[in-house]
């Protein structure tokens, strides 16, 4: 009785809607990481790319007076960062992890710097002229009870993240180019010897991941709020990396793991308002989920091996027991 009462209170339509919204930047970042991983490129710069997208979107929306244009500029800016990443990685053979670290740190400080120099803002900045991305009601869908209110009435970036998951799935697994991407990721020299342009594939995935991550960032600054604060992504890029690993770098898997982290986040927020659990503990929840996810992914192979080994021992003991019994009969 009591439990049901609590769960009704805690999980409301609003919480699920908020989970869907919070999942959006994670899904987009995770798709970016996943497509790079499929091509054998370790893109740990998702966090930086996302932050850059958030910054570019709000600045462009302010300067151009149109939020949609702001989003487009953010996507282009993310692509540019991806292209820069690709150029340095492919041309100068810089180690990917070091490059990503540098990029993340540089973008974090650069946004703070420009905020201060251009807008004179410390820490966070907003302008009343900036419009939030409008919510879009989908005809017909919004008529359906429960599903309608859940799935309809989100902004364009939310829908794009879902569409991108399915589109990337089709590209990766049902087109020539997607197959070439996976071939490059799994055995680069196999791809090279059949004449696939490996550099082209890597440049493409890095630009695309920049676009996706930056779009996720734009959602934060002009979709969810109309505000930019320093380090606005707050680790969402890293959560996206986790979601991608947890979803085994599969676009559809990533859609679900991203939603899972989004819900964990929304649930944590909700818990803070309806229970007395200390907020610091509750805010920790999504990170615990991420930690558990990473441990599961990491231990997957080992666990499978250990289980197989245990079965083998049991079987072997039975066999030995059987051979011992036989002569007595």
């Amino acid at each position: 009785m009591n439990e049901i009462q609590i769960s009704q209170d805690i999980i409301t339509l609003a919480v699920i809607r908020s989970g869907i919204r919070l999942a959006t930047p994670i899904i987009l970042g995770a798709l970016g990481f996943a497509i790079c991983s499929r091509a054998g490129v370790l893109n740990f710069a998702i966090e930086g790319m996302m932050l850059f997208g958030a910054f570019a979107a709000i600045v462009a929306a302010f300067l151009l007076g149109n939020t949609y244009l702001g989003v487009v500029v953010a996507i282009l800016a993310g692509g540019l960062i991806g292209a820069f990443f690709a150029a340095v990685y492919l041309k100068y053979r810089v180690d990917l992890v070091i490059l990503a670290l540098a990029l993340n740190l540089f973008i974090a400080e650069m946004t703070v710097f420009f905020l201060r120099v251009v807008f004179g803002a410390f820490g966070s900045w907003s302008d009343p002229s900036i419009q939030q991305l409008p919510e879009i009601n989908i005809p017909l869908l919004d008529q359906i009870p429960i599903l309608g209110p859940l799935l309809s009435g989100h902004n364009i970036i939310v829908y794009t993240s879902w569409f991108a998951s399915f589109a990337l799935y089709v590209v990766l697994f049902h087109t020539r180019f997607g197959r070439h991407i996976r071939a490059v990721g799994e055995n680069q020299s196999a791809a090279e010897t059949v004449g696939i342009d490996v550099a082209r594939v890597k440049i493409f995935v890095l630009i695309l991941s920049g676009c996706l991550a930056a779009l996720g960032g734009a959602f934060l600054s002009v979709g969810h709020l109309t505000l930019f604060t320093r380090d606005m992504t707050g680790g969402r890029g890293w959560l996206a990396v986790t979601a991608s690993l947890f979803g085994l770098n599969h676009p559809i898997g990533v859609l679900f793991t991203g939603l899972f982290f989004g819900f964990a986040d929304a649930f944590a927020v909700r818990l803070q308002t309806v229970t007395d659990i200390p907020p610091s503990l509750v805010q920790f929840l999504p990170n615990v989920a991420a930690l558990v996810a990473l441990v599961l992914v990491g231990a997957r192979g080992k666990l499978r091996e250990e289980l197989a080994r245990r079965r083998f021992r049991q079987r072997a003991q039975q066999e030995v027991a059987a051979t011992v019994v036989t002569p007595a009969e």
């Binding site: 070439h180 071939a183 799994e186 059949v194």
Partner: peptide, 13 residues
């Protein structure tokens, strides 16, 4: 490419 099928490998590219 280990995860590809025989046909996918032979026709790669």
């Amino acid at each position: 490419v280990p995860s590809f099928t025989v046909a996918q490998n032979i026709l790669l590219g």
